[in-house]
Computed example of a mutant assay.
Amino acid sequence: MNRTEMLARLMTQNISTTATPESLLTLRAMIEEASEMGAERALARLGLSDDGARDDIDELRELLRAWRDAKKGAWKAVMDWLIRGCLALLLVGIAVRLGLTRSLT
């Protein structure tokens, strides 16, 4: 029996009974079945219902992690170059201030 048939049977069973603990269990089972069906439908619409979906998600996570690492590395490199440039300008400024540039000409 597939999930659609199961949900239909549970709904019929719940309608024909009165509000008893068993009917509450039936209602809970209906909700669980409906939520699983909805989740499966959503995954199917996203193209993640096949057997390779787990591998696809793992690969996407790897790519995202690599992108974040590359972005972090790029910012670190930019900051390193900016700091080096500022230090070089500071050294040139000190050299000019001390008059060390006269000996170069």
Rank of each mutant, 00 (worst) to 15 (best):
L89T: 01
R84Q: 06
P21L: 07
V92I: 08
R54C: 12
I83F: 02
A39H: 15
L43P: 07
M30C: 08
Q13C: 04
R9H: 06
E33T: 15
A88F: 01
R68L: 04
L60F: 10
L89W: 02
A70L: 06
D56E: 12
E22F: 08
T20C: 08
V96G: 01
T26V: 04
S35Q: 11
L104F: 06
M30D: 00
M11P: 00
L24K: 05
D58H: 09
L48C: 12
T20D: 09
V96M: 05
L64I: 09
R61E: 14
L7G: 05
R3F: 08
R54H: 13
R28Q: 12
L43M: 14
A74L: 15
I57F: 13
T12E: 15
K72C: 08
E62I: 07
A66F: 06
S16E: 11
M6R: 15
W67S: 12
T20Y: 07
M37G: 05
W81N: 07
R65G: 00
D55W: 04
K72F: 05
E36S: 12
V92H: 02
L98C: 04
A95E: 03
R41T: 11
R97K: 10
W67K: 15
D55G: 11
L25V: 01
L43I: 08
L60V: 08
A8G: 01
R84D: 10
L7A: 15
L63I: 08
D58N: 12
A95W: 04
L43H: 09
E36P: 01
I83W: 03
V96P: 00
G99C: 03
W75D: 15
D50N: 14
P21G: 07
T26D: 00
T17M: 14
L100Y: 10
A74W: 13
D80Q: 12
S35N: 13
W81F: 09
T12G: 10
I57K: 10
A66Q: 11
S49I: 04
L60W: 15
G85L: 04
T12S: 14
T17G: 07
